[in-house]
């Protein structure tokens, strides 16, 4: 217990460390001293050697926004995944459970087919992601009571419908331009992260995550099952709706720009459980931090291993898998 407490500051500081680290990390030839100079040159009272404009661009316009965006995406996906696992009382559920990723995937594919401007892609991905969850929620409510199992089933049904639609979009896409764009988008990437989009997509991610943070103790209670949480005074429908709404807001914000990034919203919460236990009061912020750090590190790898970029969705599993097994061994699956 006490060792766990000592870990907290490290866990909560880790995203900042990872952001710093990623500023020094990349394929563009720029030395440690040069990056440090760029970082310091905006601070008052510190004399730095003259800073190269290109270096400023690399650090401040390319690497920093991308790291910040990665932190938000990783955090948003992980906190939503943790919240859904608690709400649905099912450790195998992830942030994409209610079809948000499949919906966003189809929205993006459709936008790629119909338009050439990129901004439509983000809007379509976000809207379809949200629409998919709304549909899943309505299906879940067909049956009179609010059983979460029907909600999960609704998510699976909606998810597979949108997956089929995405396949159809690929089928009709122009195989030289549109098809590769769709395929790459579906594999996820932070490469398109620019300051303006980060601001726009950052808002839903932050509102969603903040909403889940407010409700994190309620998730403990909802995870006791419906009869018991009702007997503990919880307004089932309202709480369920709020949690689904906030989690979807956060996830849709993330996937609409970063594409479909699997694994993070499923496994990072479990890493959190192994380290700090199941109490969602602690688990949710810890999942956010771990997810943020994890995605920054994986993205730094993705953009530096080879000359081209490796899709993020590929690396999250390749890097996360072995790390998860290592954690499993170290903690002897404590928390389970």
């Amino acid at each position: 217990m006490r060792i766990r407490r000592l870990l907290y500051p490290f866990i909560f500081l880790s995203p900042i460390l990872c952001i710093l680290l990623s500023l020094y990390w990349g394929r563009y030839p720029i030395t440690f001293a040069e990056v440090t100079a760029v970082l310091l040159h905006r601070l008052p009272f510190i004399r730095t050697p003259a800073v190269n404009e290109t270096h400023i661009a690399v650090v401040e316009i390319i690497r920093l926004p991308r790291a910040l965006f990665g932190a938000l995406v990783g955090g948003a996906l992980s906190i939503s995944g943790a919240a859904f696992q608690g709400l649905f009382r099912n450790p195998l559920v992830s942030s994409g459970m209610l079809g948000v990723s499949s919906g966003a995937g189809f929205g993006a594919a459709l936008a790629i087919l119909l338009f050439t401007q990129k901004s439509f892609l983000y809007i379509f991905a976000f809207t379809f992601g949200f629409a998919a969850v709304a549909a899943a929620y309505l299906i879940g409510r067909i049956y009179r009571t609010t059983t979460s199992i029907t909600l999960v089933l609704g998510g699976i049904v909606v998810g597979s419908i949108f997956a089929a639609l995405t396949s159809f979009a690929k089928f009709v896409a122009d195989p030289y331009n549109q098809l590769p764009t769709i395929v790459f988008w579906l594999m996820g990437s932070l490469a398109s992260a620019q300051r303006s989009q980060i601001l726009i997509a950052g808002i839903p991610m932050m509102i969603g995550s903040a909403g889940l943070m407010l409700m994190r103790w309620r998730i403990n209670i909802l995870s006791m099952g419906e009869r018991e949480s009702q007997a503990l005074g919880v307004n089932l429908q309202l709480s369920q709706l709020l949690i689904v709404f906030f989690a979807t807001l956060a996830t849709a914000g993330a996937v609409s720009i970063a594409g479909v990034i699997g694994w993070v919203g499923l496994v990072v919460p479990h890493m959190g459980r192994m380290i700090v236990g199941s109490d969602n009061r602690v688990l949710l912020p810890v999942s956010f931090s771990l997810g943020a750090s994890f995605l920054i590190l994986v993205d730094s790898l993705a953009r530096s291993i080879t000359g081209g970029e490796i899709p993020l969705g590929v690396l999250t599993a390749l890097v996360g898998g072995p790390f998860f097994i290592y954690l499993l061994k170290q903690t002897r699956a404590r928390g389970w």
Partner: peptide
């Protein structure tokens, strides 16, 4: 029948 899902203390 209390179904235990998560290992709370």
């Amino acid at each position: 029948n209390h179904e235990k899902t998560f290992p709370y203390t």
